[in-house]
Amino acid sequence: MYAIEAENLKKSYPKKIPLPFRKVEWVNAVNGISFKVKKGELFGLLGPNGAGKTTTIKILTTLLEPSGGDAKILGYDIRRDVREIRRRINLVAEGERTLYWRLSAYENLKYFARIYYVPKSVEKERIEELLKLVGLWERRNDLVMGFSRGMKQRLAIAKALINDPEVLFLDEPTLGLDVQSAIFVREFVRKLVDEHKKTVLLTTHYMAEAEELCDRIAIIDHGKIIALDTPEGLKRLVKDEDAVEIKVKDFNPEKLRDAPFALAIVKEDPTSNLTTLRGQIDEEDLPKVVEWLVKNNAKILSVEEKEPTLEDVFIKLTGRAIRD
């Protein structure tokens, strides 16, 4: 049995509340996603903002009903067995406002322990264990409103472990965190899988994070999975081609639409008018690319050969880069 099974999942949102006798337009967010996650696996959904990652997580965590397709969590049907699933999973949602800021760290965990029906006999012990695990035991009686963004995220993770879930969903867990907190979260998540044998599904738009953490990654764009493999397997898609990064000045990115090469913008600095472009370009094609850029008023600042990354995979598959 798989921990997560998604079969041709679809989700459309109405533009208005679909009341009876009201004609409503629907917008597609997820367009037939299928994947399976093994127990004890750390699976990543990688894609740009608006790709359908959060919607997929919301469907799998029973917060949203799919418009089509089926999904099972630990063998339970997401439409029929909502409460069974909710007992066995938890979610670290995107953003910092998922806790009660006017309650202390301890009060937050106690509250969630109660609404997750954690047995009274283990409640106290589990709260203490979790607060110690995320390094907040000393601050347990402080109101959350006084916590830093990183501390709030650590508490959100502790909250998500309060019911000892078999499957944990993390939606952009390091978004907006400082470097140190992001490292803590990444290491902690990996430990949850390796040592605590949890199944984790995380969404991210950070390439390095997906590459570093995940056992397998599904790249998602416009509500569809466009590639699914291990990080190494995905990188093999671009292994035989060289990744080239070109730094240019005064280049109009609009011109890229007519470019005869697969180049994507990975960084833009409007104040100094600098643009970093990236793509898979053969050695013999490189002079033609440079010539084309110069013809389009770009001042070439540097041209560097790079190790292929997941960014290159995404560029190869979509012609665009995933940007922050």
Binding site: T61, L63, R83, N90, A93, T98, L99, Y116, Y117
Partner: peptide, 9 residues
């Protein structure tokens, strides 16, 4: 916090 609560059993 609404969805955090909805997600609970």
């Amino acid at each position: 916090t609404l969805e955090t609560n909805v997600l609970a059993p």
